[in-house]
Amino acid sequence: MIPSTLEYTKASSIDEAVAAVAAGAVPLSGGQSLMPMMRLRLAAPHAIVDLSGIPELVGICEDEDEIAVGAMTIHREIAASELIRAHAGLVADAAGGIGSPQVRNRGTIGGSLGHADPHSDMPATLIAAGASVIAKGPNGERRILAEDLITTYLTTTLEPGEIITQVRIPKSDDHSAYAKFHRRAIDWTVVGVGVCIGDNGVRAAATGVADKPVRLSAFEAVLNGGGSLDDAIAKVAEGIEPHAGLDGSVEYKKHLLGVLARKAHGEASSR
């Protein structure tokens, strides 16, 4: 189908994009979620502002403690980044498995976070990695923990007029991995689990098991309290109530959660 009539502007600076979003335009990053929704008329923004003309939103660099990833950096670049592979392997894992090469050539890390689909791969891995998001709006810039960004289906704590400009991933020596299950390569993930194992303990998060990506607190608590992996797997779904849908029942998704937590933990441990 053809999207509804809309006004299009291409911002050449972050300030210009913020002004457009504050005036009601929807930010367009890689378009790999927004465009299909517009075609199906699930979304019908009256105005969009294209962020692809803002050079400072693209690229991966580092300071002493963190890797800074521009919000418009595409998944292909993230999957190929040695820096991200070295410090947050699970984020590179996730980026390399999103959609298809065509989708990874357009889709962006900021777009994935801002879209907040409860089956996205990227947000869960960034939560497990302890990443933060830099958002800029009419009232200036602020930092939001990735864990505090997404509140429910397609909904974030971004204020009106705010856009995500950067994702900051802590540099760590953690061993980490992401494991997911999906039916066909191009399909959305049914359930995915990211695990980081380091000197400060285990952190884990999952996608596809709630209305937003969630920390696997019970799983972490068992392992960080010296318990066995089997005991942690037995408790992995504690406090989590997945939604039944065409992609599986509640029991099925809880089962997948255990299988994938074990797989991700095993892969992380072997790295």
Binding site: G31, Q32, M35, P36, V103, R106
Partner: peptide, 8 residues
Amino acid sequence: AVLSCSTL
């Protein structure tokens, strides 16, 4: 390589 159905 990109999808021309997801690009304006």
